[in-house]
């Protein structure tokens, strides 16, 4: 093989190998990109508090819609977890509170992490959580039962065709929390 061709071969192979490494890194970069994408498009219900001072209540624009509340635990969940009520009539444009109850049945001190989901997804960006137990880890003593509050505000420009919003929380046990107690 001519020297010139050999060096062209080596340099091209090197460039392609670097491309493969960059694509490996890109696979990992998809993780933060996914979060950013979900946040920008409002697909995912945020787990950070909306700033209460930016919310101005509009009682004059209030419209009654139905809020359905769901609670679930995953297979690791030694919890009893349920909303205070299954459905509730709520007003757009007003700050309101709802409550969930969680009961630690594990026999140990454990920490719960809750993830929120809002359906239809289109409503997620109008549903602003001012206070939510999903923002923080929730430590529970052995056999502790306590109420968990969500303070929220539904923006009055919620599209007119949405008359029901479903708010669903899944309560997870923080990984390792059980093992540490054993």
């Amino acid at each position: 093989m001519a020297e010139q061709q050999k060096s062209a071969t080596i340099s091209m192979a090197t460039r392609l190998a670097v491309t493969a490494l960059v694509m490996f890194a890109f696979g990992f970069a998809l993780v933060p990109l996914y979060d950013i994408f979900c946040e920008v498009t409002g697909i995912r219900s945020p787990i950070e508090a909306s700033n209460a001072s930016t919310i101005i209540e509009h009682p004059e624009l209030a419209r009654t819609i139905k809020l359905e509340m769901l609670a679930s635990t995953n297979k690791d969940g030694p919890w009893e977890f349920h909303p205070a009520r299954d459905t509730l009539e709520v007003q757009t444009g007003l700050m309101q509170d709802i409550e969930y109850t969680a009961h630690n049945l594990s026999g140990f001190q454990i920490t719960g992490i809750a993830t929120p989901d809002i359906q239809p997804a289109e409503a997620a960006k109008y549903f602003r959580k001012v206070e939510c137990f999903c923002f923080n880890e929730q430590k529970f003593a052995t056999d502790e039962e306590r109420n968990l509050t969500v303070r929220f505000y539904i923006e009055p420009d919620l599209p007119a065709h949405i008359d029901t919003i479903t708010l669903a929380y899944t309560l997870f046990t923080k990984p390792g929390a059980l093992a540490n107690n054993k």
Partner: peptide, 26 residues
């Protein structure tokens, strides 16, 4: 192919090294 390698690596660390790429609890 490197993206698949990255995905299975993330599965591996989720399982054995306590990361939570795909674990909702984390």
């Amino acid at each position: 192919m490197p993206v698949l390698a990255g995905a299975v690596t993330m599965l591996l660390t989720d399982r054995f090294f306590g990361t939570s790429f795909f674990n909702a609890a984390g």
